[in-house]
């Protein structure tokens, strides 16, 4: 089972919850410890909570065009077809802008002179190693100045091959843009983390909309719960989104998280609460 933990914006405690869920499941002796994938490749931080020992590192790149000026007739076809304006014909020169190129291969395929070949342009790495409680930890890391998360997230997705009964937890990047959609793809279940505030609700709506379009069953976790917030309850009820777990706003929790601890370490009963929530999700029951 693949579970994606996402939230419409950053700072909702998404990573705390994703890592706590992983630890909760790791503490369940009846199944192998889960695979944890940090898909927030621009600012990964799940390692702070799960403390992996990275043993493998693999470079990830995209194929970008290289123009052979001796063959190029400057016909402009490549520049016309490129949706990202990453290749331009400027008088008697054809120029590639690696920072803009998405490696789609359209220009190479369309060049009538076969003047374009491709080379690998590194955009980041995937790292892997064992973490707390035997969790199989992976993360992607984007090189600075390469605004190209999606290929790394796809590569992370592709490398996940769970054993029978092994759960995969993916920590999505914040927001609702392409990288988030890439992280959600192929999920069996989506956990949306929110806060009981107008901003939290606004972002939850956006994220729930994406989930609906992708057709992924979804449940909500309310973090920093400090009493009823009727608008949130109404939205969840009318959208058919079960509220699976409420984590109260408590000083002890906030302080523990600031020290890099997750919920299971701060209050061990959360291990059981996350396991119960997981089994509820697996059974497909609504809260």
């Amino acid at each position: 089972m693949r579970i994606v933990v996402a939230s419409g914006k950053g700072g909702t405690g998404k990573t705390t919850i994703a890592t706590s869920l992983a630890l909760g499941l790791a503490g369940d002796g009846s199944a192998p410890p889960p695979i944890f994938v940090d898909c927030d490749v621009e600012a990964p931080n799940a390692h702070l909570f799960l403390k992996p020992l990275f043993e493998q590192s693999q470079p990830i790149g995209i194929m970008i065009p290289v123009v052979d000026e001796a063959l190029c007739t400057h016909c402009g076809k490549c520049a016309e077809v490129c949706a990202y304006h990453a290749i331009a014909v400027l008088g008697q020169k054809t120029l590639v802008f690696p920072q803009l190129c998405h490696g789609c291969g359209s220009c190479t395929a369309l060049c009538p002179e076969k003047a374009i070949s491709e080379r690998l342009d590194p955009i980041g790495v995937i790292e892997r190693g064992p973490a707390l409680e035997g969790i199989d930890f992976r993360r992607g890391l984007l090189d600075v100045g390469k605004p190209m998360s999606v290929p790394i997230i796809r590569a992370l997705q592709k490398q996940v091959t769970p054993r029978p009964g092994q759960t995969v937890i993916l920590d999505a990047p914040p927001g609702t843009s392409c990288p988030v959609v890439a992280a959600m793809q192929g999920a069996d279940y989506l956990l949306l983390v929110t806060e009981p505030t107008p901003f939290g609700l606004h972002d939850l709506r956006l994220a729930a909309e994406v989930a609906r379009e992708l057709g992924i069953p979804t449940g909500v976790i309310v973090n920093r719960d400090n009493g009823p917030y009727p608008d949130l309850e109404t939205f969840c009820r009318s959208s058919g989104l079960p509220i699976l777990l409420r984590i109260p706003f408590e000083r002890a929790i906030a302080e523990g998280i600031a020290q890099g601890k997750n919920l299971v370490e701060i209050q061990p009963e959360y291990g059981e609460r996350f396991r119960q929530m997981f089994h509820q999700v697996v059974r497909g029951e609504k809260a």
């Binding site: 520049a79 990202y84 304006h85 990453a86 331009a88 014909v89 400027l90 008088g91 802008f97 803009l100």
Partner: peptide
């Protein structure tokens, strides 16, 4: 041409200028 582009606006404007000789 680049005013509404999500990226590569400068490249498009430059290409336009080059095309105008």
């Amino acid at each position: 041409p680049g005013v509404n582009a999500s990226g590569g606006a400068g490249v498009q404007a430059a290409q336009f200028a080059a095309g105008q000789k």
